[in-house]
Design a binder for these strands. Sequence first.
RNA 1: GGCCUCUUCGUCUAGUGGUUAGGACAGGUGAUUCUCAGUCAUCAGACAGGGGUUCGACUCCCCUAGGGGCUACCA
Length: 494
Amino acid sequence: MEEKRVRVRYAPSPTGLQHIGGIRTALFNYLYARRMGGDFILRIEDTDRTRFFEGALEDIFSTFEWLGMSYDEGPVKNGKYAPYFQSERLELYQKYAKELVDKGHAYYCYCDSDRLERIKKIQEASKLPPGYDRHCRELSNEEAEENRKKGTTPVIRFKAPLDGTTSFDDRILGKIEVNNSTLQDFVLLKSDGFPTYHLANIVDDHLMEITDVLRAQEWIPSTPNHILLYKAFGWTPPRFCHLPMVMGEDGHKLSKRHGSTHVIEFRNNGYLPEAIINFVSLLGWSYNDKEEIFSLEDLTKIFDVDRINRAPAVFNYSKLKWFNGVYIRKLSIDKLLELTLPHYIKAGLVSEKPTDEELSYLKKILPLIQDRLELINDAPELSDFMFGTLPPYKTWSEILPKKVEKEVVIKILEDSLTILKDIEVKPHSEMQDALYKLTEKHSVKAGAIFMPIRIAITGINKSPELFPVMSVLGKDRVIARLENSIKKLKEESS
RNA sequence: GGCCUCUUCGUCUAGUGGUUAGGACAGGUGAUUCUCAGUCAUCAGACAGGGGUUCGACUCCCCUAGGGGCUACCA
């Protein structure tokens, strides 16, 4: 049999910001399409008017762009099957819902929310499984007419089979079968004329010639409904592939209470798109047992649906951070500058319109902190001591090495000052060797020499390598900071 | 409650009847004539339990337990 060109879609509903779970689904669809040389479609399922969220669309587009995922058809871009907003396809769904009624697969239901509420309460009270009681399923024409006269706008419900079974073959889960007796007469068309997810989704998937549906496992329970719908229409269903859920650290579906979940939050917090893509690709999928650093480009070549896991995956923030560090270390200094500059400006370390001088100074600082940077946003905090004549000293007493007498520290700093005044401040072993000699003179360990110098010069006890720092700072500032520290220490001891 | 589904180190996972059960993150230790980070080395850490099937089960089957999802005129 000839294989059809693969067509997959990501179909978010604009009810909130894009989150990790959604983007994982989007990514897998994207990768599958690219790997198979097929089409990736973006479709906006805006069928719930009550939950529409203002910034959602903008967020979807910018998230895709930021992550570097392109789609072949979708809003704005359009394509052969336009429009890609379900809200613009209403007549279509109404037509198909009506068709189902005519074929006897669906019916008008006049039950209002009051009645629905009532039967729900009764079911709860008598511990019966909840669900619509199919009151309108076999309504006579007279009764229907009566309801119409009362002015109630009906919904259209699917007439689910009462017995037998419905099954489908999931690409990763295998055969899934349910008894039709457990199915509901779910709503297809709401009373406001909008379709429900179930109707709109399958109508569009069919019309848009979607071949594979990759979606989260939370959709498994409604898949039999969808299969039945395809059957009622006489259409061939696509292949289904249900992706494992993404959980929070407590084992529940990932949500806000687990911390950041929206892609935009990660973006704002200093995460790189490469890190998000790489990390998310490994949520429920793996390549092999040794490689795990992949670019989006790599992934389009190696992604394999058959290697997707069945079990849910817990979102591990610390591993994401590690990935971010990996990708930050891969950045060129120019790129790193571009990304960190706004933060330096915000921190007030660089002027609003940075001068060339400021820019080239930043370019000298960044290599100093690149290795230790985990989040782009942390750059200013990690390097603020590189700015100004004197660093922002903390309390001296807290920072001084504990095991060394203050008098000795002062002597060490004075000796260092003498040494440094005489040589070039370069990141060279010469400087290191010269200072190292002080360990013998004062009979202390290396740390007792370098720590005081570090603190005197940077004002902190955790800094990048001392000699590169001194080199970037320049001789004048090194001397000034050393002198200032000695002075301060002397004041404090008197 | 009902239906569906899942189960290898704390976490992400490799594994497809015979392995010292491998890797990564996190954690421990050591090295890198200084701290932190990075890097390198190293340690610790798992097949949920019980029955089968088999010469042999992490791998196949059944049961139990535990987890998760769904159960809307939301997607």
